[in-house]
Amino acid sequence: KLETFPLDVLVNTAAEDLPRGVDPSRKENHLSDEDFKAVFGMTRSAFANLPLWKQQNLKKEKGLF
């Protein structure tokens, strides 16, 4: 399991300012399950079932792209 970080560490943070080991294209993977659901309004599995373009739009909207 990946290390999780608080939302404010990941949202609207440039790649070079992210904690070590965080993939800038997969910031959402480093949210706790609770934060993930609070941000996206759905579970990880529901998010994973969305088309890629919709996932990317949601990530942009939430500052996690």
Rank of each mutant, 00 (worst) to 15 (best):
P6G: 06
A14F: 08
A14N: 13
F5N: 03
F65W: 14
L50W: 01
V39H: 05
L18F: 07
G63C: 08
S25M: 14
N12R: 10
K27Q: 06
G63S: 04
P19I: 03
E34R: 08
Q55N: 00
L52I: 13
Q56W: 09
H30D: 03
T4E: 07
L50A: 01
S32N: 10
R26N: 13
K59M: 06
L2N: 10
T13M: 15
R26M: 10
K60R: 13
V22Y: 04
A15D: 15
G41Q: 14
G41T: 03
N49K: 13
A14Y: 06
L31S: 01
A48I: 09
K27Y: 04
V11W: 05
R26H: 15
L2A: 13
L31A: 01
L10P: 03
K54D: 11
V22D: 03
T13Q: 09
V9K: 09
A14W: 06
P51T: 05
L10E: 03
K37C: 14
E34Y: 09
D33G: 04
E3F: 06
K54L: 14
E3I: 13
L7Y: 15
F36S: 00
E3S: 09
P24Q: 08
N12E: 07
E16K: 13
R20L: 15
K54Q: 15
V22I: 11
K60L: 11
T4N: 07
A48D: 12
E34W: 08
L64D: 03
A46Q: 14
H30P: 02
F36N: 00
Q55R: 08
F47W: 07
K37N: 14
S25Y: 11
R26K: 11
S25C: 15
K54R: 10
D8I: 08
M42E: 00
K60H: 08
P24K: 07
G21E: 09
R44Y: 05
V9W: 12
V11Y: 06
P6W: 03
F5T: 03
K1I: 11
T43N: 10
K54H: 12
P19D: 04
G63N: 07
L10I: 05
S25E: 13
F36P: 00
S45K: 12
K59N: 02
L7I: 12
H30T: 04
E16Q: 12
G21L: 06
L31C: 03
L7T: 05
V9I: 13
D35V: 09
E16A: 12
M42I: 08
V22F: 05
D8H: 14
N49M: 12
A46K: 09
D33W: 04
A14I: 09
L18I: 06
F47P: 00
L31N: 00
L64F: 11
P51Q: 02
R44V: 04
F40M: 07
L10S: 02
W53M: 08
E3W: 04
L52E: 14
F5L: 07
N29V: 11
A14R: 13
V11N: 05
N49W: 06
G41F: 05
K54A: 13
D8K: 09
T4F: 15
V22C: 05
S45H: 13
K54Y: 14
L50Q: 04
S32K: 05
N57L: 14
A46N: 09
F36H: 00
R44E: 02
A15E: 12
K59L: 10
A15F: 10
P51E: 07
G63M: 05
K62T: 07
P24L: 07
T13D: 06
D33I: 05
K59Q: 03
R26G: 07
G21P: 05
L10Y: 01
A38E: 14
L52M: 12
W53Y: 09
N49Q: 13
P6R: 01
T43M: 06
F47Y: 06
L18A: 04
L31K: 00
D33Y: 04
W53N: 08
L58F: 05
F36W: 03
Q56L: 12
M42P: 00
K27G: 03
F5G: 02
S25I: 10
Q55D: 00
K62F: 08
R20I: 14
L64T: 01
L10T: 02
Q56C: 14
W53P: 07
N57V: 13
T4V: 13
P6E: 07
N29I: 10
L18N: 04
H30R: 04
Q56A: 14
A15Y: 11
L2T: 10
M42G: 00
L10H: 02
E3T: 11
E61C: 11
K1M: 12
K60D: 07
R44A: 05
D17H: 10
F65D: 15
K60F: 11
E61D: 09
D23N: 10
D8G: 09
R26V: 07
D33R: 02
A46V: 13
L7M: 10
P6Q: 04
V9P: 02
G41M: 08
V11M: 13
K59T: 03
K62A: 14
K54V: 14
D35K: 02
K54M: 13
L64P: 02
N49Y: 08
F40Y: 01
N12L: 08
W53F: 09
F36A: 00
F5P: 02
E61R: 08
N57C: 15
D35S: 05
L50G: 00
L50Y: 03
H30C: 06
Q56G: 07
V22P: 03
P24V: 08
R26A: 10
P19E: 04
E16P: 08
D8T: 10
P51C: 05
R20E: 15
P51A: 07
P19N: 04
F5Q: 03
W53Q: 10
H30M: 05
G63V: 01
D8L: 09
T13I: 11
